[in-house]
């Protein structure tokens, strides 16, 4: 076989597969996003940007805003919880470190739905948390946590915490310990050396982690669907709604593209930062 034939045999099948089943569908929904909804839920191909304008209509902008708000809060909590954890892990011996990292990642490979259901089981009014709190007398009425934004945030933090810990851990790992010694020798207190040395040097890790958590949060569907109430809708739920209930495929397509644009933009920033890091 000539090199040319080999190249074709190796690469064309998957390239064709992805072109047909990945690129084509995206092209189709892009065309749909510029079309209009027909009177009976069909699609009329009169091209206009109306669907994109509708995204910022107050009725939908609220859901968009809520998605960003919930994702920002979840990312911030992941950072607050994840940074100290990464710091702790980075200070352990080699073997113990690997053990702690594995312990962090293993649940990530288990079924997403199951992990979300676990929180439903714990947080509901007759759930374990309320039963326990009632039993020890901290509360007299069960707390309504399930089907609120709080439940959604708990679910998102629970799911994506490893995405924050790992990049922060990597940047802590790269830290030159001589710098810490120097800071201490020059009379810095532990808090000062954390604020003036460790924190600035691990900023790339914090940024990477924040983007890696924010991106799946903003595109979340299952977590708000199961743990959130009807008022905790996020973009993902709105998209699903347009396709399966409202039957406004053009608007659903436009929303999908807006979501994809947000995600790709953030990941592009991440890629550029990583490249700069490598050059440095």
């Amino acid at each position: 076989m000539s090199e040319r034939v080999k190249k074709i045999v190796m690469l064309v099948p998957s390239a064709a597969w992805l072109a047909l089943f990945f690129v084509m569908p995206l092209v189709i929904i892009f065309i749909y996003s510029l079309a209009s909804r027909g009177p009976f839920g069909g699609v009329e191909f009169i091209f206009n940007p109306d669907n994109y304008v509708r995204v910022i209509d107050p009725m939908y902008a609220g859901i968009l805003w809520r998605s960003v708000y919930i994702s920002v809060i979840s990312t911030a909590i992941c950072l607050l919880i994840g940074y100290p954890l990464a710091l702790y892990i980075s200070r352990q011996s080699n073997a113990y470190r690997n053990f702690l990292l594995a312990l962090l990642i293993i649940p990530f490979w288990t079924n997403f739905l199951v992990r979300t259901y676990a929180w439903m089981f714990i947080l509901r009014t007759e759930g374990l948390l309320n039963n326990t709190l009632l039993y020890i007398g901290v509360i007299s009425e069960p707390l309504q946590i399930l089907f609120t934004d709080t439940a959604v945030i708990i679910g998102l933090v629970y799911t994506y915490l490893p995405f924050m810990v790992l990049p922060v851990y990597v940047s802590l790992e790269k830290l030159d310990h001589n710098l810490l010694m120097a800071a201490r020798d020059l009379g810095a207190t532990p808090l000062q050396s954390f604020r003036k040395v460790i924190l600035p040097l691990t900023r790339p890790g914090v940024i990477s982690g924040s983007i890696l958590v924010f991106v799946p949060c903003i595109g979340a569907y299952i977590t708000p669907d199961i743990l959130g109430g009807s008022r905790s809708m996020m973009i993902g739920n709105l998209i699903q709604n347009q396709f399966l209930s409202a039957r406004d495929w053009p608007f659903g397509s436009a929303l999908s593209f807006v979501l994809m644009a947000i995600v790709l933009l953030l990941l592009l920033i991440l890629a550029r930062q990583d490249r700069k890091e490598e050059e440095a």
Binding site: P25, S253, S256, L264
Partner: peptide
Amino acid sequence: IIPEIVMGVSLLVF
């Protein structure tokens, strides 16, 4: 990297 929901709906439409 693209959100699963986007992949799901685009395949449905396709």
